[in-house]
Design a protein around this nucleic acid. Sequence first.
DNA 1: CAAATAAAGGACAATTTTGTCCGAAATAAC
DNA 2: GTTATTTCGGACAAAATTGTCCTTTATTTG
Lengths: 161, 161
Amino acid sequence: MSENKIGSYIFAVNYLVVFSKACEYGIKATTYIASQSLEERRVSLKSIAEEIDSPVAFTAKILQTLARNKIIDSSKGPTGGFLIEKKKMDEIKLSQIVSAIDGDNIYKGCGLGLSECNASRPCPVHHHFAKIRNDLRKMLENTSINELASGLEVGLTYLKR
Amino acid sequence: MSENKIGSYIFAVNYLVVFSKACEYGIKATTYIASQSLEERRVSLKSIAEEIDSPVAFTAKILQTLARNKIIDSSKGPTGGFLIEKKKMDEIKLSQIVSAIDGDNIYKGCGLGLSECNASRPCPVHHHFAKIRNDLRKMLENTSINELASGLEVGLTYLKR
DNA sequence: CAAATAAAGGACAATTTTGTCCGAAATAAC
DNA sequence: GTTATTTCGGACAAAATTGTCCTTTATTTG
Ligand code: FES
Ligand code: FES
């Protein structure tokens, strides 16, 4: 992380963030749970946090949100843990995870923070921006958890470094 | 802004943020200053903040940073204010503003927060993500302030609403 | 039924980002 | 030189996000 000064204060940089931390953890957790569900294994909070390299308690909050949104299935008690039904894996898209965690009305925002992105009254970067944002939206809507989990299972992708 | 619950707390959502607020204000301010500089007018902090609809004191910090980075020119005293030399406008790209405010090593980050984005050890979304991030980088590197300022001057684009 | 286990949930703490306030320094006009 | 104006810079405050701790609730096993 580079440090840069703005006025008197220093603030550490968060890259060209697209997802919040909560979302990052949510996507990674869901992917990991799915990959284990492919093998009929329920996974515990602890093992998830370890596998995706995330703070345990914070991850718990996110999993609760995902469970309330029926994206993942949770059960308490011994042998409990998290699971995703195989038949649902193809239906669950990245966009749903993002919506569950960061709320709806996502892709709508103006790149320069205008209260509304509107092509008939565009901000200076609208034309440049809209295409990229649209590509991102499409990508999120077209990418299924099944796809991500498969890549992980086969050892093609990784969840930590 | 939608409200969404994560666990016990409620947090307001910041869209699929790409720029920080500081960056947004920086881009808008620079664009406005440039559009006025095309007409040989220096502009004051106050008028900038008003025109781009941003908090005055916070905007001041950002303008200071941009001035230190020689992206804009500032002068004190009566008749003082901010200015961009016409001959520099073609050279100043969005990427420079972003770097000045949010620091360097921007476009490098992994979409899922891995410590490093690495194609030979990719995260599950790397393949989907890299293209979008690259498009964004190119866009920022190719868009000049002159271009943005011209659109604004002609009344094709807007800075608030 | 008791004990052990694991998620749910509430309260709270740390950090980061955003935003404010106010005096200092520079400069132009008188 | 004094005054008015405008940016600079430091300290501080608020808000949002990220992260922790601890108690409760559900469930399995013996
Ligand atoms: S109006 Fe700014 S991105 Fe569309
Ligand atoms: S490794 Fe995650 S985006 Fe490249």
